[in-house]
Amino acid sequence: MALNQEWVLRWTELATRAAQTHREELTALDRAIGDADHGENLDRGFTAVSEALSQTPQEDPAQTFRTIAMTLMSKVGGAAGPLLGTAYLRLSSAAKPAMEAGDVAAMIEAASAGIQARGRATEGEKTMVDAWAPASRAAQEAAQSGADCVGVLQAAASAAANGAQNTLDMVATKGRASYLGERSAGHLDPGAVSSSYLLDAALKAADKA
């Protein structure tokens, strides 16, 4: 079953709820190796996204993702704002009115590539790339081996969660945490963790679809 605008809206709703629920947790993670604002940033961003979507009816997934992108960019700020904004811009470009498994995998791939291009980070630098890159690979593999949309998102979400956990022992070489050098090891990267929640929301939204 293809995913459509309904999925996009539900995903966004669940993402907004996740940002709210995990707000303190994400800020605490950022306090350890950053500037203690990641949870607040995301929550502020998605709250604004909800408002924006409720105010202006969205035509299709492409327009919706674009609105989300612009809202996140102007409300999240810091490093995460442009990174997630870019991810959503790429989702917008890759989105279709009806998205098959292959389309979903391509979208995740586009978002991940956008984040990497924007942040000039590669895997292993203890950033959100460490959630998105494995998620993208897992989604591709799942689509190629014939999984449906939910299967693709399932693969992506669980790879992202694993990826986020793997940041624990990494030494940051990008972003604010890099100034800490070795002292950044032993803490999860807040952006990787929040990204895994985002992909989990995408899955849950599709599951219900």
Binding site: A79, G81, P82, R118
Partner: peptide
């Protein structure tokens, strides 16, 4: 700073 760089770039 990463934040400045990325926001100005966008």
């Amino acid at each position: 700073y990463t934040g400045d760089v990325l926001n100005f770039e966008m």
